[in-house]
Design a binder for these strands. Structure first.
Length: 436
RNA sequence: GCCGUCCUAGCUCAGCUGGUGGAGCACUCGGCUGUUAACCGAGCGGUCGCCGGUUCGAAUCCGGCGGACGGCGCCA
């Protein structure tokens, strides 16, 4: 084997290895042969490059191997990097050694694919350029969330995944056998975060969340990652500002770290950049209803939640995410308190993403009135006993506090312009799918 | 929970008012020294989702069941 240094394909395409002999370790992505020349496109996880294999430039048996190796065979290929306009990407590797580590069996995924088939072969499909790009963006998003909160004085705080309580409504809980009794998978970290703020002040967390909603839409997962924050002494105005700052920071980080991935995914970086530099507006639920009824000619009655249709119609008037505050109190969860200035509404907000990606954040100030919360819980058939510990938080030095949760996959789907949220997570769990 | 679409080769699909199951891709073999998910020729490949019914005869018509996908509601 000729002398060479192992490199990543991305280094070659950046122009740093031109005319040098290098080795790449990767997998065959495409292959075409033409008698005494084989064009093999190789991927290594960082990018793809064409390797040109000519008979005579390497051992004959290696040439035959290059000719017969199927897609996804693992290889170590050595050769000279040459700038060549005929090669996709502008650079190719002129091969001097072609070493097959494993000859792959026939790869089941070919050019014709249906969503169902790709979901069945998800463990193989995650190798695709598209999902590879999504995962890189997702990694940036997750990293940005940690950085944002840590840089702003928040402490990462973990809550149990097995929980005795509901947070967002009993009908959407996953029940789990727990020794001789039962418990539930976490719907939210919030109730525990509310306990934590009395110790730490400002906390955040990111982790899996489980909701057994019978939803079969491109915006729902049964298992998704939620990034939540909770802060003592914080009220609604400041809370919405933190949310806007967080989302803007996430976009800036993706723009900085993933320009190639955004291109692969067909997202317009300029549009995102403009969005990151434009203030996100805040409107009230009342204003949203007026806008829909007066400008969009709809007939929405006060008191109804904004549904998908209303949200999408509303977003036609905005190019950035929008914060909507003060939803009707009655349709909100037990822990959202009435607004003293407008008691029929709650001190809560949603952030709605543009282009039909829907709610990406939901949050609120937290109720401090034990009697009110008990009443609301009883209305939904909840057992008050399970919440005594939660009410204790209002008995020992209660303070105003607030928090919100970001749907990580919804943010990733929006930034990556995905058709479905399922592609924002490696192995999606939905109503009808829990394998592979 | 409600509504809609779909299920035929490994994959994507065609298959008319019922009459011996097809194409493209993939794969195998042969050809080709610059291909861009190459091209040319040949070959391999089927429990037509499952069960039942009608019929001389069902991929096709009827009934039931199962599975998948999407929309609504609900949510992040």
């Amino acid at each position: 084997m000729p002398k060479s240094t192992p490199v990543q394909i991305t280094e070659i395409l950046d122009g740093g290895k031109t005319d040098q002999v290098v080795s790449i370790k990767g997998w065959i992505y495409r292959t075409r042969s033409s008698g005494n020349i084989v064009f093999t496109v190789i991927r290594d996880g960082t990018n793809i490059i064409q390797a040109t294999v000519k008979r005579g430039n390497l051992k004959d048996d290696e040439f035959e191997d290059a000719k017969k190796a199927l897609i996804e065979s693992s290889v170590i290929v050595t050769g000279v990097v040459v700038e060549d306009k005929r090669a996709p990407g502008g650079y190719e590797l002129r091969v001097e050694s072609f070493h097959v580590i494993q000859f792959a069996e026939v790869f089941p995924i070919t050019e014709d694919q249906s969503p169902e088939f790709l979901m069945d072969k998800r463990h193989l499909w995650i190798r695709s350029q598209k999902l590879n790009a999504v995962f890189k963006v997702r990694s940036t998003v997750v990293g940005a969330i940690h950085t944002f909160f840590r840089d702003n004085g928040y402490i990462e705080f973990d809550a149990p995944v097995l929980q005795p309580n509901q947070c967002e409504g009993g009908s959407t809980l996953f029940e789990v056998k727990y020794y001789d009794t039962k418990t539930f998978l976490s719907q939210s970290w919030q109730l525990y975060a509310e306990a934590a703020v009395f110790s730490l002040g400002k906390v955040y967390n990111m982790g899996p969340t489980f909701r057994a909603e019978r939803s079969k839409t491109s915006r729902h997962l049964s298992e998704f990652w939620m990034a939540e924050m909770e802060a003592a002494w914080m009220e609604l105005d400041e809370l919405t500002q933190v949310a806007k700052d967080e989302i803007r920071f996430i976009i800036q980080q993706v723009l900085e770290k993933n320009p190639r991935e955004l291109t692969v995914l067909g997202q317009d970086s300029e549009k995102l950049k403009k969005m990151a530099n434009t203030p996100f507006p805040t409107i009230t639920y009342d204003e949203a209803i007026s806008l829909l009824n007066e400008k969009a000619g709809m007939n929405i009655q006060w008191g109804k939640d904004l549904r998908t249709l209303e949200e999408n119609t509303l977003m036609q008037y905005f190019e950035t995410p929008v914060v909507v505050t003060n939803y009707p109190l009655e349709i909100m969860a037990f822990y959202k308190p009435p607004d003293p200035l407008n008691p029929k509404t709650a001190l809560c907000f949603d952030m709605i993403a543009p282009e039909g990606y829907g709610e990406i954040i939901g949050g609120s100030q937290r109720g401090l009135d034990i009697d009110y919360m008990k009443k609301r819980l009883q209305e939904t058939g909840e057992k008050i006993e399970n919440y005594q510990w939660y009410f204790d938080l209002r008995r020992y030095g209660s303070v105003p506090h607030s928090g919100y949760g970001v749907g990580v996959e919804r943010v990733v789907a929006w930034i990556c312009r995905l058709d479905t949220i399922k592609d924002a997570i490696a192995f999606p769990r939905t109503m009808n799918r829990y394998s592979p």
